[in-house]
């Protein structure tokens, strides 16, 4: 039930964001988030944006995965 989908904000009208991912478009209320801008990624749950993606943290996680690959699974 707590499934939420990351989508990209394409347009903002009042407190509603038009969001898109892989060609699917959805409206989401921005009632729970401040400072959302067009192009931000947000997590959509039941018609509301509940969290904003931190791109630096996403990149840090992906970097960790790359390091896991590089060291061939040895324990750091």
């Amino acid at each position: 039930m707590c499934l939420a989908v990351p989508m990209q904000v394409r347009k903002i009208e009042d407190e509603v964001a038009i969001c898109e991912i892989d060609g699917v478009t959805r409206e989401a209320s921005l009632m729970m988030l401040d400072d959302v801008a067009v192009d931000d990624f947000v997590l959509i749950h039941a018609g509301f944006a509940i969290a904003k993606l931190d791109p630096a943290e996403a990149e840090a996680t992906l970097q960790l995965f790359r390091e896991v690959l590089d060291d061939g699974g040895e324990i750091a």
Binding site: M32, I50, D54, E57, T61
Partner: peptide
């Protein structure tokens, strides 16, 4: 916190206020 891209230490304060 493994899921730092969407989760912070404090979470979503505005949602909790609602």
């Amino acid at each position: 916190n493994q899921y730092r891209r969407f989760v912070t230490a404090d979470g979503n304060r505005k949602a909790r206020q609602i």
